[in-house]
Write a protein that binds this DNA or RNA. Structure first.
Lengths: 116, 116
DNA sequence: TTCGATGTTCGACGAACATCGAACTACGAC
DNA sequence: GTCGTAGTTCGATGTTCGTCGAACATCGAA
């Protein structure tokens, strides 16, 4: 659909438990990892990618589209990522800075641990 | 019961997602918080408390005993805490150092975030 | 040995969750 | 307008989870 506008919570309204719950699922942790590692890719020639963004369609995971959409919503509502719609396409990115202000060091620490 | 011996996982066998799942629940996060903040209490006169330990019975939460036991098991199996049995009593403590070696900074960061 | 205190395990229950396919919606292109 | 693309929402299904009370196991004390 790429509906008119997604709802992004005010970062100050996000609870720590909500963030942890969002991250406590293999698929979602992997999505966040992908966005962190490869989010800033310079595929300049490709599309209207902004800094740190990643196209929905490039998130190729072994799950159904509807399931991916579901996980992205969980992450969005936990304040972890932001959706930007451009025509029918949509791009996702981590809310790195805001999140770091609310929960200092959390995202970076988790991602570092995730690398083993 | 306080059975003969609890099973504590080798910290290297613990997955990040397991730890996050364990922490992603209000009651359990509160338990970990209590152990971190008040674990090192000097109630010297009271019992055989070791450094950083806390007696089972002192964890007074508004839940049934069986529920508390369940949560403690989840935390134990996630490598977050250790049980020590002494007679019929049992004491719990965070596996702070081991955990920090496996997932550097994770516990401290989460606890700091939890303080707001 | 009998009793009480301390935790653990065992169903059982409803709620929440991950997953899927199908129906739907919004947009660009023709 | 009509069609295809891109992503969301809905309904259904099976699983996991948090919670409880009851039964059980283990130990110290009387």
């Amino acid at each position: 659909m790429a509906p008119k506008a997604h709802r992004h919570p005010d970062i100050d309204d996000v609870e720590l438990v909500t963030v942890l719950s969002a991250l406590a699922e293999p698929t979602r942790l992997r999505i966040v990892h992908m966005l962190a590692v490869h989010g800033c890719s310079r595929e300049g020639a490709h599309g209207g990618l902004l800094e740190g963004e990643r196209a929905w369609k490039d998130l190729d995971l072994p799950i159904a589209q509807s399931t991916l959409s579901h996980h992205l919503r969980i992450l969005r509502e936990a304040g972890l990522l932001r959706n930007r719609t451009e025509g029918t396409r949509c791009f996702v990115s981590l809310r790195t800075d805001e999140l770091d202000e609310r929960f200092p060091g959390l995202l970076r620490t988790v991602l570092t641990c995730n690398d083993r």
